[in-house]
Simulated assay, not measured.
Amino acid sequence: MTAHTTLEEIFSAIDAVDFPAGKETLVRTAQQAGASGEVVRALQEIPAEEYGSREDIAHSVRLDPDSDIPRSAGEKGAQARQGGKPGLSQHLREAPKPPVDEELER
């Protein structure tokens, strides 16, 4: 799911954060700053890990394809398919289980 917000709004909401910071800190700071529901949702959807800078967050947050992040069409498509920031382990990504795994769990 993509959020209907911009990086500028997200960065404004987490302006008081000292990096590195975890996902919970980012969400809590945005809520305390009175951020919109879309900004909070965008931060809630990033992977639970430590972020060292705003750039790390920009690579992890999933925004509308028409957002203010300067990316090529290929980069936008890759993020839409995979989510998360580049280099994030596959087991940490939100992806449906293959049918074989579902069958084995029965």
Results as ranks from 00 to 15, higher is better:
Val17Trp: 06
Pro20Met: 01
Ala95Ile: 11
Val61Pro: 02
Ala30Gly: 05
Gly87His: 04
Ala16Gly: 15
Phe11Met: 03
Pro99Asp: 10
Leu63His: 02
Lys76Met: 11
Val40Asp: 02
Met1His: 12
Ala48Trp: 08
Ala3Lys: 07
Ala33Asp: 09
Ser67Gln: 03
Glu45Ser: 14
Gly37Tyr: 02
Ile10Thr: 03
His59Tyr: 13
Leu92Cys: 08
Arg62Ser: 03
Ala13Ile: 07
Gly37Asp: 03
Glu8Ile: 15
Pro70Cys: 06
Asp56Gly: 09
Gln44Asn: 13
His4Ser: 07
Lys76Trp: 15
Glu9His: 07
Ser67Ala: 05
Arg41Trp: 15
Glu49Met: 11
Gly37Trp: 02
Asp15Pro: 07
Ala42Phe: 04
Glu103Tyr: 13
Gly34Thr: 14
Val27Pro: 03
Glu45Thr: 12
Glu55Trp: 10
Phe11Leu: 06
Ile69Ala: 02
Ala95Leu: 11
Glu49Gly: 05
Ala73Cys: 11
His91Tyr: 11
Arg62Phe: 03
Arg106Asp: 04
Arg106Ser: 07
Ile46Lys: 01
Ile69Phe: 00
His91Glu: 11
Ala95Met: 10
Thr29Cys: 11
Gly84Phe: 01
Thr2Trp: 05
Gln79Thr: 05
Asp15Tyr: 09
Val100Met: 08
Glu50Gln: 09
Ile69Val: 08
Glu50His: 09
Pro86Ser: 00
Lys97Trp: 13
Leu26Ile: 09
Phe19Glu: 01
Glu102Thr: 13
Ile14Met: 01
Leu63Cys: 00
Ser36Leu: 03
Leu26Ala: 09
Glu45His: 14
Arg28Ser: 12
Glu50Phe: 02
His4Trp: 07
Val100Gln: 10
Gly83Phe: 01
Ser53Leu: 01
Val27Phe: 07
Glu49Ala: 08
Glu105Thr: 04
Leu88His: 00
Gly22Val: 09
Val17Met: 05
